[in-house]
């Protein structure tokens, strides 16, 4: 079935395996009663059950929690956080500001864009290496085609303060022996040993750890979505408590104009 027939069959009705709520009675969440069967789950556990339909060990859930915790920076200069703060300074609502800030986090050089590229690079590289490919060649090819290797290097500095803490935690949880993490380490060693001065960043490390848990790309994408959220609300709050409009005000002279000279509009 296709075309208008396919649309006609779906008018007003959704057949769902995900769930529904029965007003005044109960809620079904992926085949389970939310309030009697899933009520002991913490929020991240439920969130990931919603994304994957699977349950995870305590150690895996602790890792997932901490991945978000370790990257929640209440620094208003960061581009996504600044959106939340500007909303506060402009006296918008917190939901609008933080929703926009999360949307902006789907960037090419950080956040979801680089997460997905890092995840894809690791999976492709593993397949190629297991098929007999040379790791350095894989890296060089990626650099040729993409001009960067997602998960390595960083916009502001080369090196990542989060990684040693995350590696220590993964080790303490017994989650530091997976194939993808070992591959990610080998990639870093190979790059540094061949004058490609890019250290593994947090996106590269987290992609490896989550690939070892077995997330599909889509599952990983949705897992990562709230990653920066906890750092955004402090930025919004502080900006909203300051006098309105005082977050990074810009005087006219700070517009560095590089365009056409004055000219007359053709009336």
């Amino acid at each position: 079935m296709n075309g208008p027939s396919l649309l006609q069959e779906n008018v007003g009705v959704l057949k769902s395996r995900m769930g529904t709520f029965y007003p005044g009675s109960h809620v079904v969440f992926r085949g389970h009663d939310l309030h009697t069967e899933l009520n002991d789950m913490d929020w991240v556990e439920l969130y990931m059950f919603g994304v994957t339909g699977r349950r995870f060990s305590k150690e895996q859930l602790r890792l997932m929690h901490s991945i978000w915790t370790y990257t929640s920076y209440p620094d208003v200069r960061l581009w996504n956080n600044r959106v939340a703060a500007l909303a506060g300074s402009s006296r918008s609502t917190g939901t609008l500001g933080m929703a926009a800030a999360l949307a902006v986090s789907e960037a090419s050089i950080y956040g979801r864009g680089i997460d997905m590229r890092a995840y894809d690079f690791l999976h492709r590289t593993r397949r190629q290496v297991e098929a007999g490919g040379d790791l350095l060649e894989c890296i060089r090819l990626e650099l040729d085609e993409r001009r960067s290797v997602a998960g390595y290097g960083r916009p502001l500095v080369n090196g990542d303060e989060r990684n040693r803490h995350m590696l220590a935690l993964a080790k303490s949880l017994g989650l530091d022996q997976g194939h993808y993490l070992r591959l990610a380490m080998r990639i870093e060693e190979t790059m540094l040993g061949n004058r490609l001065r890019m250290k593994m960043n947090y996106a590269g490390l987290v992609a490896a750890l989550m690939a070892d848990i077995g997330f599909s790309p889509k599952e990983y994408y949705l897992y990562s979505f709230p990653a920066f959220l906890a750092g955004m609300s402090p930025c919004f709050i502080e900006a909203s408590e300051r006098p309105e409009g005082t977050l990074y005000p810009i005087p006219c002279t700070d517009i560095l104009y590089e365009g056409e000279s004055k000219r007359t509009w053709p009336k």
Binding site: C252, D254, Y257, E258, K262
Partner: peptide, 29 residues
């Protein structure tokens, strides 16, 4: 703290560097 742009230029009012006396879009007033 400056923002680079080829699109927009503003001239400030004499009494307030944050108030706009004139704004030019690609050179047009």
């Amino acid at each position: 703290h400056a923002i680079r742009t080829r699109i927009w230029r503003e001239e400030a009012e004499s009494d307030n560097p944050f108030a706009t006396r004139a704004a030019y879009c690609n050179g047009y007033d």
